[in-house]
Design a protein around this nucleic acid. Structure first.
Lengths: 223, 223
DNA sequence: GAAGGTTTTGGTCAGAACGACCTATACCCA
DNA sequence: TGGGTATAGGTCGTTCTGACCAAAACCTTC
């Protein structure tokens, strides 16, 4: 067990961690990226979320980005702070709060992906962190351009619909989905077409902004 | 400047803080509770948010509740985690991340209240934390029962409307407001009436749940 | 005690949004 | 060249929203 003290006698955490829930949509379902197995490690076994310790000269988000770049090669993923988990006992090594982050990346990213709705027990309290991330994504889906992380390049309305369906867990009427997503003002047509297999070629779109945006879209009623 | 190290040589924060943005509605406007002035202190002067250092055996939320109880006497305020601010340099005493919280309390709570939209510069990075809190409250207003913290006891629809108006910054039609708030299912009538001055007596309501609730209400379109 | 003022509250109505469906378009494949 | 398939555009009935109107119920004043 590590310990830490500071010069004023106040108790200090032994370290500050930054873990990231990296989500994408694979095979029509939400998937989470996990780091190497923690077999017999301090986390109690099971896969763990990618993350690391925050240095004294960097913000937690910078740590999350650095670790993500090391593991996936991604340089500018969609990343936002999720919540901080600091319960005593969450890490058997000592008092180590973690600033959890949420990232959304394209499904082409290499790594070990687990289906969210059928994942094995995770190390530490990472299952709880994952649950918070999923809830966040579901809630923000129609109010923000979170999906920009999963669909960075030109995409068809059918591809976007598949992503929204996987995250929200509900099916959308193709025509209505296209009308509503266009009405949000979050996307714009590229002017090009893509022809995959049979059927009329689909128009390609892109998100107007590739930066995280809040509330830009119109809302969609939930029932 | 404090320092801290741990036995493994990893850099460690000197301490972990838990600050709270305590909001209410006073005189028809959002108001924030501040602790004693930090004149000439480490925060660079100006009022500071109430808060303290997290002990190694308590969660940050527990620290926030403890400090709030010490300063206001409140025992179970509406409290939720807001975000963590851990930029290096945010506290001149050393590397001290803070887990910021958001609390909503009745206007009757004693303390030093500042109007949010016309507040003097705050100490440390507390202005940024306050801005995040205001944004959070505005966004959750119609999706949750956040207002339960400000309106704990029996209240009239007019009182509720005043709170919602102050937070959202828009005026609501009295009749439409009543219809919509009742439609959310968040409130229920107490069966009693209150007669204040002239006019027909107003029916009293209470929130169905006094615990923080997400997404229970129907949504209200934002324009 | 009666009349007027004030506030709450229920109802109505037009416009907008939503969800479902239908049909035309445009491509691939046989 | 004709059939199959997927996208794209349009229509229609229902629901929701925002604004207004009027009745109800109380207080104050004459």
């Amino acid at each position: 067990m590590w310990t830490a003290t500071n010069s004023e006698g106040y108790p200090a955490p032994v370290a500050l961690a930054a873990d990231t829930v990296v989500l994408t949509v694979r095979d029509g379902a939400l998937a989470v990226l996990v780091a190497d197995e923690d077999a017999g490690g301090p986390g109690g076994g099971g896969p763990a979320l990618p993350g690391g310790f925050v240095g004294p000269d960097e913000a937690p988000a910078a740590t999350a980005r650095r670790k993500l770049a090391e593991k996936t090669g991604l340089d500018h993923p969609y990343l936002e702070q999720l919540a901080t988990f600091a319960d005593p006992g969450r890490d058997p090594r000592g008092w180590i709060p973690t600033v959890a982050h949420l990232a959304l990346v394209p499904p082409s990213v290499d790594g070990r992906w687990l289906p969210v709705r059928d994942a094995p027990p995770l190390a530490y309290d990472h299952a709880r962190i994952l649950a918070a991330a999923v809830e966040r994504v579901e809630g923000k889906l129609w109010w923000s351009n979170v999906a920009v992380g999963i669909l960075p390049g030109p995409f068809t309305l059918a591809e976007a619909r598949a992503v929204y369906t996987a995250i929200a867990g509900v099916t959308y009427d193709p025509a209505t989905f296209g009308r509503d997503l266009k009405a949000t003002g979050l996307i714009e047509p590229t002017g090009e077409l893509r022809s995959d297999g049979p059927g009329r070629p689909a128009a390609l779109f892109r998100f107007v902004s590739s930066d995280p945006t809040w509330g830009a879209g119109r809302r969609k009623r939930v029932r």
